[in-house]
Design a protein around this nucleic acid. Sequence first.
DNA 1: ACTTTTTGACCGGAA
DNA 2: CTTCCGGTCAAAAAG
Length: 208
Amino acid sequence: MQSQEKITVVKPVPYRPFSSFSSFPKLLKDCSTTGSMQITCPEETATVWRPKVTRFTPPPSDLSTGIAVTMTQDGGLDATHEQMVIDTEQVVSCERMTEFNNINKPIHGVKNRLSYDGYNWRKYGQKQVKGSEFPRSYYKCSYPTCPVKRKVETTLDGQIAEIVYNGEHNHPKTHPPEKPVSSTSTEIVATDAHVSNGAGAENHLGVC
DNA sequence: ACTTTTTGACCGGAA
DNA sequence: CTTCCGGTCAAAAAG
């Protein structure tokens, strides 16, 4: 039903799975302007397919920048989206924000090739987009046949401001990175909540 | 020597 | 039809 609509939109254009993306930044702005944790409007989500957006509002005492994760994949379902909303809230509650910060940090000299979501990413572009005060970086999953891409907006402070995932990993995670000793040993799994089977990740995310 | 990042230019789509 | 903007490509540089 709704899911069919999504697929119809997504499949023909892997790179532009959502034609209404232009209005997306407005939503984010609106959310940030209100200062509330409103991630997406459930009503709209139910009728209009849009990338999964999750905006994290970290505690001011620790992070000064909100973090948003947008999931855009073929296999996206309303149910999945709803779960994402819940999960992200849990993530905040569990102070997993730290993990998001780590995404942007180099790991053992390996720049951001391996982020904490368990996949290898290769940066192929960066741009300053309108409507966003932060530069947007474009990454591809470095796995040979994996079509997944992601857009990451980082603040001047180096924090992740927004992450937009596009596509679905068709391979298992790479070797998990070392656990950060200074923080809870938790992987950032919110980003791959759509792994081929679309299961494991979501579970991880929900687990605190 | 190899892989990844950086950066400017180019292309296509939307307004 | 023109302009603007986002996304991608490709060459050069860095690690």
